[in-house]
Nucleic acid binder design. Structure first.
Lengths: 341, 341
DNA sequence: GTGAAAGCGCTAACAT
DNA sequence: ATGTTAGCGCTTTCAC
């Protein structure tokens, strides 16, 4: 396979008995080629296994068919799922992703700027690079004319292109489920308050509580990070507080599992003594002890939708709508039970 | 920032009062430029913030300064850590990574082949794409002249460039630790037997056992996958088998945690009733219940080393040694205790 | 040590 | 509907 000498558009043109631009036209799916010529050229291309050389295309057309990828954390489950979908979608449109490091670190900004100035990516996808100051980057990029789509950081007022999941609805759904089970003292272990997704889940929780007419008890709300450790520590604090609760909404599954560890250490059973609902439906959720009831987000589909949006903006200049919100799904397992007075 | 018009080498040459090739020479660190000229040009470059346009370089030089990345599974902890290190190292050498999908799926082969024929990556890094038939891909790629480095799939006899961790040593270290604690009936929950890393950990386990003079009991060895679920199911089988054991070596932390869940369900305490040691030291290990004793692998460093090797092969044609093996580290926490008859 | 000339493989006007 | 002519921004001979 792949001998060092690569067929060029010239070889195809010669073999097909046409000029180079004509081949170029079929390569780019231009309408102005006769059906027979197009078919004939396509046959030759297939037969030779010809692949256009992307650097040459990029140099001539100012397009690279590569997309920049900026993520806050590669080890995040959200990242791995979203990128899986994004990659598939990108390939289907003839694009590739180029890794552009993380965005949270302000000193990394020059690095991913080089993606634009040096590698000339056609657009960039932010995968939950949603730190406090992220929208600054995004807006600046967008204003400099480069297409940008973000996921996991829903900021509708910004007008930026983004696809996310309905976190308010998800938080509400989780809380309503607990409420429906008869629980009234529902604690919450939240993610970092400077993340929009965490805020929104909190908002959903508050909305659900408000519906019942009883106010949320601030002592039952603990802010933390997205990590297992945070759930563990958060639950310890909750337990020390002595404010009674019979259920908890953990803003992700890792937090939930950390909380369960702390609960077990304290001799409390789940769900007999306290019910707990997570968020994300990570692979471990199904096999944790007990199997975790949780809120599932269609992450892979989000990656696909975000990439589709990005490609659309690149190729058509704009996309409407440019903000897409997916729904969550409640996955009932056995970490929650009816409140039995 | 970034106005649409990008400075070119021509602009630099003009401003510096030299010819274009001279600027090109300093860009590529060629020796044949006088010190003053070089400094002068470099100043202009810095001052203008000039960035060479990689497509043009690639077209002219047949080099792209991009590396292909092929991974079996983006959600794997190994992937996220190795890629983090790899990315940093790549940037330091002026390279970027392009995502090239997963390799296990045979039908994906054409896709990452396009990375080579169309995008002309300078080399490709395989991140534990270590399915049974992987070395076929690798060898074919290497033979077609493209530099390849792999991680997480140690096959020294292949002669391929690779960096990995000493899995035999790691398996031995884990087992010896348990042995040193006085355990003699040590079960093992292994990864997939078609993965070299799993085989090697098993080999280390067997070696350690052999040293003590007592043979391994096949009933105490359960093969599975790398998933949490597999540890859970594996432990259930172990428990049903009725062959007594007081300790278990789980070939990764997720397996270990799954096993602990099953143990808890069965009313057995860790480490009082059974000691368990994991492998990897994932972030959750420290906060699981109980905190997991495990074998740590320097994954980020492996990513850096692999990339360094790849760049070396690309730039110098070869690298010696082209196989690097890192040591593991025993992390003692509290999931193992002395066997108290 | 430095410059002039040519060309990498393709697309983009412009013709026809 | 197709061909002609110019480049895109850089590296590379090969002169001087």
């Amino acid at each position: 396979m792949a001998n060092t000498k690569h067929a060029t558009i010239y070889d195809v043109a010669e073999k097909a008995g046409v000029s180079i631009p004509t081949v170029s036209r079929v390569l780019n799916n231009r309408p102005d080629v006769s059906v027979e010529t197009r078919q004939h050229i396509q046959d030759i291309i297939d037969q030779m296994g010809y692949q256009p050389f992307s650097n040459a295309r990029g140099l001539a057309s100012k397009r690279t068919y590569t997309l920049g990828l900026v993520a806050a954390d590669f080890s995040d489950f959200w990242f791995s799922q979203v990128i899986t979908g994004a990659e598939k979608e990108a390939h289907e449109h003839g694009y590739y992703f180029m890794l552009g490091s993380s965005s949270c670190n302000p000193e990394d900004e020059p690095k991913f700027l080089r993606l634009l100035t040096e590698r000339h990516v056609d657009g960039v996808l932010f995968i939950r690079a949603s730190c406090a100051d992220e929208s600054g980057h995004l807006t600046r990029l967008k204003e400099s004319g480069i297409p940008v789509v973000t996921t996991g950081n829903y900021l509708p007022e910004s007008g930026l292109a983004m696809v996310d999941v309905d976190n308010i609805g998800g938080g509400r759904k989780a809380t309503e489920y607990l409420l429906g089970l008869g629980h009234t003292r529902i604690a919450m272990l939240s993610g970092p308050p400077d993340w929009r997704s965490a805020c929104d889940r909190t908002e959903g929780y508050l909305q659900a509580l408000r519906t019942t007419g009883m106010p949320a008890n601030p002592d039952l709300i603990i802010e933390g990070t997205w990590l297992h450790k945070s759930g563990y520590l958060g639950m310890k604090r909750l337990l020390e507080n002595k404010t009674p609760f019979t259920a908890v909404f953990a803003q992700n599954d890792r937090i939930a599992r950390g909380a369960i560890s702390a609960l077990h250490e304290a001799g409390r059973r789940v769900p007999e003594d306290v019910s707990i609902i997570g968020y994300d439906d990570i692979p471990e959720a199904e096999f944790s002890d007990p199997p975790l009831t949780t809120i599932r987000q269609p992450m892979e589909e989000i990656g696909r939708a975000a990439t589709r949006l990005l490609v659309q903006i690149i190729e058509d200049g704009e996309a409407t709508p440019n903000q897409i919100l997916f729904d969550t799904e409640l996955i009932v397992r056995s970490s929650c039970s009816r409140f039995a007075q």
